[in-house]
Design a protein around this nucleic acid. Structure first.
Lengths: 198, 198
DNA sequence: TTAGAATTTGATTAACCAATCAAAAAATAA
DNA sequence: TTATTTTTTGATTGGTTAATCAAATTCTAA
């Protein structure tokens, strides 16, 4: 399945992947084409086909890369904390920080999730994330553990709370503008979540 | 600008609009085409062009219709309540109920918001909604009024809370499956929001 | 009834698309 | 060096697209 790739091949694949992220930011998934990606990467269209079986494989790889980058960023910051409550705060701040610092990655991620579809024509956004998404599971685990260890109140549902936190985080991603104070929102979000879990 | 339309013309436009919603549910925005809409509506492609200047105008009208339908549904249920706290609960339940009862409208709305772009090539999801979206304003007004009338705690930020509530509501929309208990989530969400505002 | 207007069709057009492929170029190995 | 493999190009193919338009049909009003 996964053939061994040469150094050049890997570098080229990464270049194409990065160009795809750029083009997604510029014109979005709907107008995305191999020709536009090739132009962005300053290569020929045929070269993309040489390194990726088809457009779908390219998109799938880009999606994997983007999900992995976000996951790594957030897990990195959570590992730094030992206290469960601090881990929860780290999850929230890391999520908001990533969205703010890696806007291009986030836009590309949104474009793919809400546009690309699986072979069975199911859009990724309809795919049941809570069951599989490692970030969802990570958050839910923290909330459950906090309850078991009596650090958190017993009076909230971990699953519902995980959905609320992720929703509140995603929503702010869509509100980037001069008038939106992300730092303030982060403080307020932590205040609200604290009221729920403590 | 808005010419007076005949009865037939209005009926046809609505038929095309409904067919657009159906096709968006079936194959999504990316694969949407006038030919597919025409086939769904059992009319010729030229007829769509006769009633709508271009594809963009058709999408814009469909978007307006979908936003209007949701707004009307939610405002209807809020008007039934006089108590401010009850209005807040009505907002939450109405939002979740609409998403559950009008799944097709919601899917079509998502497909357009995350795919269609304005003439300036700005995707609708990047458009700063909080400032303009009447639903956002409505929710924020309730939260502010509740604070002024000392029904709600003074210890939360109406804007941040509005974002959290809308985010928590939108997120659940993406999690529709057999395993997801919408009724339970609604209860838990109300419990959590109550902790924040009371 | 009938002329004119509104509506509808379906073929046509030009632009763009993903994918293929023969040929060239570059890298590698012997 | 030379032979072989890998990488790259860009033209080509068959397909889809939105929009146009002449012609046909249906509706409307006098």
């Amino acid at each position: 399945m996964t053939k061994e790739k040469t150094f050049i091949s890997e570098a080229r694949r990464e270049q194409i992947l990065k160009a795809t992220i750029d083009v997604l930011n510029d014109i979005g998934y709907v107008k995305l084409s191999l020709a536009k990606i090739a132009k962005q990467a300053k290569i020929s269209t045929g070269l993309i086909s040489y390194h990726f079986a088809d457009k779908e494989e390219l998109i799938q790889h880009t999606l994997n890369y983007l999900i992995g980058a976000q996951l790594e960023f957030i897990e990195e910051r959570m590992k730094a904390e030992t206290d469960i409550f601090e881990q929860l705060l780290a999850y929230i701040t890391a999520t908001l920080t990533y969205q703010n610092e890696y806007v291009e990655n986030n836009v590309a991620l949104i474009e793919i999730i809400f546009n690309a579809r699986t072979e069975d024509n199911i859009p990724y956004y309809k795919l049941n994330e809570e069951e599989e998404d490692p970030l969802y599971l990570r958050l839910e685990t923290i909330l459950s553990e906090g309850q078991e260890k009596r650090i958190f109140s017993a009076d909230f549902d971990p699953k519902a709370t995980a959905i609320l936190i992720n929703g509140a985080a995603s929503e702010s991603m869509l509100l980037q503008s001069e008038s939106f104070d992300i730092k303030n929102y982060q403080q307020e979000l932590i205040k609200m979540v604290t009221k729920i879990v403590k």
